[in-house]
Design a protein around this nucleic acid. Structure first.
Lengths: 317, 317
DNA sequence: ATGGGTCATAGTTTTTATCTATTATTCTAC
DNA sequence: GTAGAATAATAGATAAAAACTATGACCCAT
């Protein structure tokens, strides 16, 4: 059986005329006759009782027809479904982002995104880098906004922007009167870190040339589980911390006993990228998503101008 | 799109593996890959996100799959339907019969038919010859039991039996002491006829060498609309009438003031046949129906032994 | 009878699907 | 890291299916 055959018999059933039916199907009359005959032989039943002068459908043919209509209906549904999704921007885009980025980046782009692509649905999740990579591989998300270099063969990367780190410290701190912070300044302060797993913690330590003290416990006791908590601690005078630039735009930024200053260090930034499976079919949607992000960044971060060089591809175009 | 393609994608969706899926479909892996790729191009959507190591279904693919399952379900329904009807004896057989035959023949064959072909369903209708022929041509019945020769090219005939006419007359009639009736006897009696349209009326007149007096009115007043009514009239002494042999077996046959005698005439019979469209596809069912009739006839009628010679056929075997 | 209309058949050509062999890629194991 | 196993994609050849044109058989109407 074949969908074409079903179209043929429906055409004949509706016209009661092989010639007219064949025209309607854009095939010759012998073709139509032949295919219908083949179908009848395959099913072992006569669908049409025909003479030279008349074509009439048999009772069993009538029953078959009912199913044929339903089948073609479903086929149409598939085609319509596919058509609606042909726009690569359609369909939910499942995006994961790290917790030190998501709350500060998403508010910037959600409105513009909705304005430019009203039909694009986002499903957001907020997890630490390793979790997100796992989810990428498990096909649970389509792309991840990460701040860590990724070098896995199965993943591809769209670099987005470099986000500088600032130092946040209590207003009562002696740094209060400085405009910029140098590395020597950093050594003089107690640095508060996020709990393990957050890439920001490691990045902060790298910037400050601290050795990872994981497992030692003395400092671990002070580690916070979120950037907001961390800033609460800073405000309460427990120490200072590194904050990525986008996080400075929150409501706490002014009048919460916290001061933030730019770091006068060359490598005090993290590169934020959009990471996705090379095999992910919605590349266009991701490109568009990345574009919207880049267009709505504040001045505090530096967009990556040069897009990544084209890597050798699995399948030539 | 193609039903084969739908089987392919379902197979891949279920195995998440092109190789295993292709085995399950009894085709090579490249074949499966190629067809799925073609389907994806036709629909303009990616159904499977695949790398060398993994195959995962996309959201739109998932949606398509739901419809694909329903389609194949319907296809199965068609095949099952067809299988159930492959037996040519299956399906309702729509039989028409003339009123002077139906009430007397049907009781003879319904039980044997049910015994031999329990799955064969009959739909009976009782009309006069012309009506039945019209219904045959309108595909409203599949075959008709007639007592009139039919010579239409589009119709075919299975002769069944010759049914003699008997003379029915009131017990008080002088014929009462005769065993057989000759033509000269016929002239001496008032012959009652069925109303116009019944073939029996014309046949009776032919047998008696009467001219058709339709429109004259004198005799028409006495015409009855059914054989039962006619016999009531005979019983009441209004005259006598010709009765086909099978009708003699009714309950009125004894003790109702009516006597029936055989006619001593060579041509005093009518040939009962099964008539159907040449194009009717259930020929086998009709042959079987005819066989059951012939096997259950009483001695009062003469089965036609020699089956009709094969006429030139529309399509050589 | 004859001609028009209609479906079936025959034979050929075109299109489509399939196969085998091979390539490219990536993961795993040593 | 390098070799090997696994897996999907590609290429080219072959087989199968479906399409077309031309023709035939038949019925009906004039």
């Amino acid at each position: 059986m074949n969908l074409r055959d079903l179209k043929y018999i429906i055409s004949v059933a509706e016209t009661r005329h092989f010639g007219k039916a064949s025209e309607r199907c854009f095939v010759s009359q012998p073709t139509l006759s032949g295919q219908i005959k083949k179908l009848e032989e395959e099913l072992g039943v006569i669908i049409f009782e025909r003479t030279n002068r008349s074509v009439e459908i048999t009772p069993i043919g009538e029953a078959i027809m009912a199913h044929a209509y339903r089948i073609l209906e479903q086929v149409g549904a598939i085609q319509q479904l596919a058509l609606a999704h042909q726009d690569p921007l359609a369909g939910p885009l499942r995006i994961g982002a790290i917790p030190t980025l998501s709350p500060y980046l998403m508010p910037l782009i959600l409105m513009p995104l909705k304005k430019q692509h009203p039909q694009m649905k986002l499903v957001l999740s907020e997890e630490m880098t390793d979790i997100l990579l796992g989810r990428l591989h498990n096909f649970e998300i389509d792309a991840a906004l990460l701040a860590t270099p990724v070098d896995e063969q199965s993943l591809d990367v769209i670099p987005l922007f470099d986000e500088p780190f600032w130092l946040a410290y209590p207003r009562e701190h002696p740094f209060y009167y400085k405009d910029e912070i140098s590395r020597s300044d950093l050594d003089k302060t107690e640095l508060l870190l996020l709990s393990e797993g957050h890439c920001l913690a490691k990045q902060a330590m790298d910037v400050c040339h601290l050795k990872d003290r994981k497992g030692q416990g003395d400092m671990a006791d002070l580690r916070a589980s979120s950037l907001e908590t961390l800033l609460q601690l800073v405000g309460a005078g427990f120490g200072s911390t590194l904050v990525p630039a986008l996080a400075l735009r929150g409501s706490w930024a002014s009048g919460s006993g916290i001061v933030a200053r730019k770091l006068n260090l060359k490598d005090a930034y993290r590169r934020v990228s959009l990471v996705f499976r090379k095999s992910y079919p919605g590349r266009k949607a991701l490109d568009e998503f990345a574009r919207v992000i880049l267009e709505n960044l504040p001045d505090t971060v530096s967009p990556v101008i040069a897009r990544k060089p084209v890597k050798k591809r699995t399948r030539p175009p």
